[in-house]
């Protein structure tokens, strides 16, 4: 058994999607997590719940609403058409948007927890030592929240690799554009091509196991270090 060209394309696309999604998520999740860890407004609970929604909703529901919003008749779709852009559904860009929403809680929660665990004291100390807010963020908050960032990156990446429902609803099945691993496996099974489905599925099982193993060992190390 070997990887067919189509399978390889699906693997590369999946890794590309997971990488781009993780990068975008870090840019969005970090300020959001900071805000959640430090705000005192009553909106905090509502935003926390909103960010956590993808944990409980069926991915098809998310995919469906994203399709409606981003489609040619949706608010965002209309706006994009008005700007002379192509609508996002059934494109790689659309998949990135869907994956970012889908994996948001996996990125926000570890970082927010890490920021909360630091507390305000180290930041206050830094302020009395002439560090501006921006400076405090980079020189104190980020280094101290490193384990949270590590967890967020690993979980966001792995979770994106494993997603299926959102992709199917929003991306369809275009080779090289939106046909990621999970969809490819689905195709193989539909075509009763179990050998090919096995290759990809077993690969995902091993990948996921290794990720969780690394995560556990890393957080264990960190706990021992800080003890």
């Amino acid at each position: 058994m070997s990887l067919s060209g189509a399978n390889l394309t699906a693997i590369i696309l999946t890794l590309k999607l997971a990488t781009v999604t993780t990068l975008v998520l870090m840019l969005i999740a970090t300020p959001l997590a900071w805000w959640l860890a430090h705000t005192q407004t009553r909106w905090r609970a509502a935003v926390t719940a909103l960010v956590a929604l993808p944990l409980v909703l069926p991915p098809t529901v998310l995919g469906f609403y994203l399709l409606v919003l981003l489609g040619p008749k949706g608010i965002i779709g209309q706006w994009m058409l008005g700007m002379g852009l192509h609508t996002l559904p059934f494109t790689f860009g659309g998949l990135v948007v869907g994956s970012v929403v889908f994996s948001m809680p996996f990125a926000v929660q570890p970082i927010a927890n890490a920021f909360t665990a630091i507390g305000v004291r180290p930041l206050e100390v830094a302020a009395t030592l002439r560090a501006s807010l921006w400076d405090r963020f980079w020189s104190v908050a980020v280094p101290l929240a490193r384990p949270g960032f590590f967890t967020a990156v690993v979980l966001a990446f792995a979770h994106t690799v494993g997603e299926f429902g959102v992709v199917l609803m929003l991306g369809g099945n275009i080779p090289g554009e939106t046909r990621v691993l999970s969809v490819a496996i689905y195709d193989h099974v539909e075509a009763i091509n179990y050998a090919q489905a096995h290759i990809l599925s077993a690969g995902l099982v091993v990948f996921s196991f290794v990720v969780l193993l690394l995560l556990g060992r890393h957080s264990g190390q960190w706990q021992r270090m800080s003890a």
Binding site: E124, V125, A126, A127, T128, L129, R130, A131, S132, L133, D135, R136
Partner: peptide, 8 residues
């Protein structure tokens, strides 16, 4: 705070 010449 960070513009005040203080030590805490």
């Amino acid at each position: 705070t960070h513009r005040r010449a203080l030590g805490y």
